[in-house]
Amino acid sequence: MPQPTDFTTTLDVQLVAASQGGDMLAFEELVARHRDKIYARAFSMMRNEEDAIDLSQEAWVKAWQRLKQFQGDSSFATWMTRIVINLCLDQLRRQKRTRAESIEQLDEELGGVERQMPVVAINPTEGMERAELRKRIDKAMVQLSYEHRTVLILHEFEEMEYKQIAKVMNCSIGTVMSRLFYARRRLASLLQSLKKEQQS
């Protein structure tokens, strides 16, 4: 029986080069290294375990097919994350087309709702444990529409600029700014509500 290749000390760039040459074992090691991150990004966007697993696996298949196009301009993890983000956005757009929009969602898209929200005067996350804060943020993110959640994810977690987000989401920079503003204001309001719930 052949011994499994030990890649523990091999760098990502070396594994990518080997994979580009058709080495599937090297590619499997890349999958093992980054699978949690890629799955987590898919899950944060889809909010559904099954969809996140399927789309993350599809992203890996696409990556294998397009490995020759990877020039190393960004890290392999960043390149992979972009692939899974695009797949998730395609899937979310398809889902949106087949689903009737609620009045609230339409109102969000049109904008203006955020201006009616009172400003949160006390920091709703002050003195909170990190684990608790993460839990609350996650809970609040679920309540946002996919467009608002995605803009927040791309800006705050993927550290993308407005114009990069506009390109990925196929919309104007103005729309990105508006969605980000709404998402932040709504998140502040939700975090405040969660704090009040806990205190009462």
Binding site: A40, T125, A188
Partner: peptide, 20 residues
């Protein structure tokens, strides 16, 4: 101030998710 708090709260506080 509200926008700053929100940005500060989210930044680096993404929920940790593991592939099941």
């Amino acid at each position: 101030q509200e926008l700053k708090w929100t940005k500060g709260a989210i930044s680096g506080n993404e929920a940790e998710v593991k592939l099941p």
